[in-house]
């Protein structure tokens, strides 16, 4: 890891005001709207209340948007030929990917942290207190997988609009990942195979322990065992990492 490379790249990302507002501001606004829209925000859910559950979802969204956006800009850099310039230095492809993951995690720290602070001041509750800390750690650190997602998707589309494509498709993944509205039935069964489901389930695990919210009369959906969430997360991480390393190698060639 090269610290100068890391520092200058981080400063570059934070200089982009529009990007920072979109990544850190939007999830907080969504939490405030969703968290206040349901009158029953104080209902008991798992180890906490409904507001905490919505906070978990928006923290997961903030983390994944942050890392996707940072990685998407990395793909645009490749299109500008920066990958060829880097290939003329001792930096290896995995060093480049690792640096981008750290930059993405730093921005995600801001996004996840902002949502949790918003939850803290608006009455999100969980007990015992470690639920807060574990939720924070999982939402923040596990968002790294979406840095790989952003890099992979953007490299496949290979244009300056790649970042928008990656961010927009993230909204769809968030829906199937059970982040926006509680899913049930066949939509839930499909969702269980999509990339954000494992990450979202893990963020909520300290609160829900795999239980799912009942969406109507009848039995609640089958709970998610921890191993299934971990497997979903790990499998998609592997897929995105493989595509990313391949894409960085391809980025060295002349455009």
């Amino acid at each position: 890891m090269n610290w100068t490379f890391l520092r200058i790249d981080l400063v570059r990302n934070l200089r982009d005001v529009a990007n920072v507002a979109f990544v850190i501001g939007l999830p907080v606004v969504m939490y405030v709207i969703f968290g206040g829209a349901f009158g029953a925000g104080d209902d008991v859910v798992g180890r906490g209340n409904t507001r905490f559950s919505i906070m978990c979802a928006m923290a997961a969204y903030a983390g994944s948007v942050a890392t996707t956006a940072v990685a998407g800009t990395a793909a645009v850099e490749m299109l500008q030929g920066w990958g060829r310039q880097l290939a003329l230095t001792p930096l290896r492809p995995r060093g480049f990917v690792a640096t981008k993951v750290v930059v993405a995690l730093s921005v995600a720290l801001g996004g996840v942290g902002a949502v949790l602070v918003a939850g803290l001041v608006t009455g999100a509750k969980a007990d015992p207190p470690w639920v807060w800390w574990v939720t924070f750690a999982v939402a923040w650190l596990a968002s790294a997988v979406f840095a790989l997602y952003g890099l992979a998707i953007a490299q496949i589309f290979r244009s300056e609009s790649a970042v928008s494509i990656a961010s927009a498709s993230l909204v769809l993944l968030a829906f199937f990942g059970n982040l926006f509205v509680p899913l049930s039935g066949s939509v839930l069964e499909v969702g269980r195979w999509t990339p954000m489901y494992g990450y979202a389930g893990l963020v909520r695990y300290p609160l829900m322990q795999g239980e799912l919210v009942r969406t109507g009369p009848g039995a609640a959906p089958t709970p998610d065992p921890l191993w299934a969430l971990v497997l979903n997360f790990a499998a998609w991480a592997l897929v995105f990492a493989t595509i990313s390393v391949w894409a960085v190698r391809r980025g060295r060639r002349r455009q």
């Binding site: 090269n2 100068t4 570059r12 920066w82 060829r84 310039q85 880097l86």
Partner: peptide, 24 residues
């Protein structure tokens, strides 16, 4: 290199410092 190879939103000084750092 013939074209590309630069980040438009970095300053000239930052660009040189990044590549110098990567070369050690």
């Amino acid at each position: 290199l013939q074209s590309g190879g630069l980040l438009r939103d970095l300053t000239v000084g930052e660009t040189v410092r990044v590549i110098a750092a990567l070369h050690g």
